[in-house]
């Protein structure tokens, strides 16, 4: 990582950090933050919903076990295969694109949004939602039935129970999962690398350009600087996670 502060000849410099304030770098950082935040939020909300649906099934049901197992697989599912799957679905000649074209005449593919930031949001949710399911399902399972029964006995409606008991109890786990999802999306590279061939909408792709570029010499150290930037963001997320956890879980051990 020392490379971030070195120039081509190995002398110490802060010049590489200047590269972080270039338009391309700022746009990429913004893109990465938007992508990570939106997929973390969508993934967390939908994943929590799906986790709730799964946990509300009886513990012995085959359906419940199957969905949890599938979630475990899909959460690890990224990279080349995932990019292919979405190109085959809503790419220029994707199955769904063609079906919608035949049915309504509308062009779902449009001007190629799949290969830009909006496309990445849709595709990233594919692994973010299952990840949320496996991370968050245990939190739902940890809600003791007695808490609900005690609340109901004391006069709480279903809404009161969720508002005053279940949601506050789930909050720390939810926030933790949210930040985990953020870091996960922020660090993801392979899917975007295959999907996006033009432009560098997010930081990892800008790093790829920096370290594979043979045209612009001396870019390798800019890659180091960008990598350092990623570490800083991830560290901030981790610190924020710990602070949040401390604030929201005073009642825990």
């Amino acid at each position: 990582m020392v490379g971030a502060f070195q120039d081509e000849a190995g002398r110490l410099t802060l010049g590489n950090l200047d590269a972080l304030t270039s338009d391309a770098a700022v746009t990429a950082l913004k893109g990465s933050l938007i992508l990570s935040a939106s997929t973390a939020l969508i993934g967390a909300v939908l994943g929590a919903l799906l986790a709730y649906l799964i946990v509300s099934m009886s513990p012995q049901s085959l359906m419940r076990r199957a969905t949890l197992a599938v979630s475990g697989v899909l959460a690890q599912f990224g990279g080349v295969v995932l990019a292919f799957a979405w190109i085959a679905t809503i790419g220029p000649v994707g199955v769904v694109t063609k079906a919608i074209m035949d049915l309504t005449g509308a062009n779902l593919y449009g001007s190629g949004w799949l290969f830009g930031l909006p496309g990445l949001v849709v595709v990233y949710c594919y692994f973010q939602i299952p990840l949320m399911v496996i991370v968050f399902a245990p939190a739902f399972e940890g809600l003791r039935p007695q808490w609900r029964e005690a609340a109901v006995n004391l006069g709480a409606s279903t809404w009161d129970y969720w508002r005053h008991v279940a949601l506050p109890l789930l909050t720390p786990a939810f926030l933790g999962a949210l930040l985990l999802l953020f870091a996960n999306a922020f660090a993801a590279y392979a899917t975007a690398a295959v999907l996006v061939s033009q432009g560098q909408p997010i930081v990892p792709l800008l790093i790829r350009q920096a370290i594979t570029s043979e045209v612009l010499l001396g870019q390798a150290n800019v890659g180091f600087a960008l990598a350092l930037e990623m570490i800083v963001v991830v560290t901030v997320v981790m610190v924020a996670y710990n602070l949040l956890l401390r604030r929201t879980s005073r009642w825990m051990r």
Partner: peptide, 21 residues
Amino acid sequence: VPASKRDMGMVFQAYSLFPHM
């Protein structure tokens, strides 16, 4: 009458206190 409207106080076997309160 639903449980929430019965006005009954119940003490459970264990671990029924709301841990976040």
